[in-house]
Computed example of a mutant assay.
Amino acid sequence: MSIDRLSIKYIVIEDEPLARRGLVKLLGAYDYLDCIGMYSNTEDARLVMEQQKLDLIFLDIHLSEESGLDFAKLVSPQVQIIFTTAYADYALASYELNALDYLLKPISEERLRKSLDRAVSYFQNRMMEKKETGESDHIFVKADRKLFRLELHTIQYIEAMKDYVMIHTVDKRLMVAMNIKTFFSQLPTKDFVRVNKSFVVNLNNIESVDSQWVTVAGKEIPLGASFKDAFLARIEKHTINR
């Protein structure tokens, strides 16, 4: 299988230093892998994930501060996860989280290679889909232990709820375990914009705008002072382009 031009950006989250360094050393043999960092805890990893685009996480399940399974529930569906653990009894839980693979420690080179073959196949298919269809007109989100396909034009606005977001569409509401900054980063910037710290709106579904409020689907959303100038500039550009 050709892997030309394929670059998979990954991080390792593992609280055992020897295991962490050992895995990164094994992964270094694959030139299509780009290591963004290795971390002993999920808090440090979150900071990097908010700042950089990421494709893959090698995630230990038994972490000292937070379970890898709990952390995985908050990861964007666009980021794939390969669990690493010394315990075989978490395989079902990883399957329910749609993990790309599940590696038992100690990880052999042969087993790791098979896992990476699966990753290559997944990301190559995704590249081909993007190439064939151009910019995607839909996203997939995890909610209620299911994967939902949402057409972007049906999304009216997204509302932050601590570590979750509520997606309001024309016919449903979905609660997704992800913070609003991470979710916003997965949306096409030409159609979606933040109007305050807690709301993202679809520019195509805005009904009215004034100096203090944005109305979408009958809901008045306050226009945050620090977001106002950028938002109004986007509105003007969007109107011209349409």
Rank of each mutant, 00 (worst) to 15 (best):
P106D: 08
I107F: 00
E109V: 10
E109C: 05
E109P: 03
E110N: 10
R111S: 11
R111M: 11
R111D: 11
L112G: 03
D117F: 03
R118K: 15
A119F: 05
V120H: 00
V120K: 05
F123D: 02
Q124C: 13
Q124E: 15
N125T: 06
R126W: 02
M127E: 15
M127P: 00
M128T: 05
K131E: 12
K131I: 08
T133M: 13
T133D: 06
G134P: 11
S136W: 00
D137V: 09
H138Y: 14
F140W: 05
F140S: 04
F140L: 11
V141N: 02
V141S: 06
A143S: 14
D144E: 09
K146Q: 13
F148W: 11
R149Q: 13
R149I: 03
R149D: 02
L150W: 00
L150V: 00
L152R: 04
L152A: 05
H153P: 08
H153I: 09
T154G: 00
I155W: 01
I155F: 01
Q156E: 12
E159C: 11
M161T: 10
K162S: 14
K162G: 02
D163R: 14
D163P: 10
Y164Q: 12
Y164T: 06
V165D: 06
M166I: 13
I167P: 04
I167S: 03
I167H: 02
H168N: 13
D171L: 02
M175Q: 07
A177W: 02
A177K: 15
M178T: 11
N179V: 07
K181C: 01
K181A: 07
T182N: 07
F183D: 04
F183L: 13
F184G: 05
Q186M: 15
Q186A: 12
P188E: 07
K190W: 00
F192P: 07
V193E: 03
R194T: 05
N196F: 01
N196H: 04
S198H: 04
S198K: 11
S198G: 11
S198R: 09
V200F: 01
V201F: 02
V201A: 04
N202V: 02
N202S: 14
L203Y: 04
N204E: 14
N204G: 12
N205Y: 07
N205H: 14
I206S: 09
I206A: 11
V209N: 03
D210I: 05
D210N: 15
D210L: 09
Q212S: 15
Q212F: 14
Q212W: 05
T215D: 09
T215C: 14
V216F: 04
A217K: 12
A217Q: 08
A217C: 10
G218N: 10
G218V: 08
G218C: 13
G218P: 09
K219R: 10
P222K: 06
P222F: 01
G224H: 10
S226L: 07
S226Q: 07
F231A: 07
L232M: 14
L232V: 04
A233R: 13
R234S: 12
R234D: 07
K237N: 12
T239K: 11
I240V: 09
I240L: 12
